[in-house]
Design a protein around this nucleic acid. Structure first.
Lengths: 210, 210
DNA sequence: CAGACTAGTGGCACTCAGTGCCGAAAGTAC
DNA sequence: GTACTTTCGGCACTGAGTGCCACTAGTCTG
């Protein structure tokens, strides 16, 4: 009948949120290490049952990612809203940069999270599945622009190439203290545009800066 | 004293080999599915103890890969033996093609294996760790040629880009019955050289040079 | 208010991957 | 034979992830 909707939901209220759990887990991972932290530890620290935690996140590996699906949706929307006069590569480059822009107070936090995701073997492996979703967003857009199927070779390669450039920038970012992620991303994406074959590689502009 | 060496080894002889176990596992995975096959099943089918199996392979996920380290060593050697007059990109392209050449009777077998590796989520995730080793071979070589550190951005991007192209070719190969892996790889690698899709991405000058 | 309904919670028991320990088995060397 | 070396594999354990089910905390209807 009535679509209750708005504020007063139907059944019992959730005790916590994905974001809160992700935060608690991240803190424990940083304190004691990913492998040393059990799911029980996290559930206890969050004040919920272990069984409940697995209803918020399908696996321990997903905890650091927080609400990645929402981020992906943002990126997809950004691409969809991009003017068609912008070239494919530029559109993707802008979207990638936008996707990785964070309020400055969250940057150190994000840095630690990425540090885990790119260094803990279990997370490195698992991340592939998230990256695949990310690549799909990219190659979906590319396929639309190029007028070919999503699973054609061009969109697929483009998906991989943009992912590679992004991760290379991330690795660089984590390696160098005080470096600027956005600038590194732009450099890496420029490398793509300019093409890396020619004689050598195009020299990238003066790297660092705040 | 005497370094026994040659044929008669010291202690007890191994009951089986990595290759044999990989083969048995692959057969079971194809028959019943990866997730439906337990490590116990594999050990039993191979006639060894479960504990022993874990001495041959560190995890269930490693079984389909067989002796990947040996393959990587081959690729590394191939690159090391490549004439320095061959351009960086060409050298890598040749090595990648060589790395993926198999005797024709093994092709269907290899196809099934890659089908698993690229489709079973657990394996897709785990594969990342193997790919990382592969990328290291590529970026190591690139770093040497470019005279920069392995962890500089150029070799890193190159590693990712070649991996992406290879995997794109593999996906295409698995998708289309009767297609030729080597040809698909060459196409994908050509895309890299040419800079994919004229109209969109900038065409890169005629690659070659020393 | 009671009673129906709905959705989140979490305990329990289970499966399965992976590991440490340790004694047994199967070889070689003397 | 004994000594030594290496592989084997059983046993018990940890920890992730799942199915089941009763319980809790809400809303809705009358």
């Amino acid at each position: 009948m009535n679509e209750c909707s708005v504020a007063p939901r139907m059944g019992r209220q959730p005790l916590t949120t994905r974001a809160a759990l992700s935060h608690v887990a991240l803190r424990l991972f940083l304190e004691h290490g990913f492998d040393q932290t059990t799911v029980d530890d996290i559930a206890t620290a969050a004040g919920i049952g272990r069984r409940t935690l697995f209803r918020y996140f399908p696996s321990k590996n997903d905890l650091p990612w927080g609400d990645f699906d929402a981020e992906l949706a943002r990126m997809r929307a950004f691409l969809a809203a991009t003017d068609t006069t912008v070239s494919l590569v530029d559109a993707l480059a802008r979207a990638v940069v936008e996707f990785n822009r964070f309020p400055s107070e969250e940057v150190p936090f994000h840095r630690e999270r990425m540090n885990l995701l790119l260094n803990v073997p279990a997370l490195v492996a698992h991340s592939t599945l998230r990256y695949a979703e990310w690549r799909l967003v990219v190659s979906d857009f590319a396929a639309g622009r190029l007028g070919v199927a999503v699973d054609a070779i061009e969109p697929t390669v483009i998906g991989w190439v943009f992912l590679g450039a992004s991760l290379a920038a991330y690795e660089q970012w984590l390696r160098t203290d005080g470096s600027n992620l956005i600038e590194l991303l732009e450099s890496a994406l420029l490398l793509l545009k300019e093409g890396f074959t020619s004689g050598e590689l195009p020299t990238v502009g003066p790297g660092g800066q705040a």
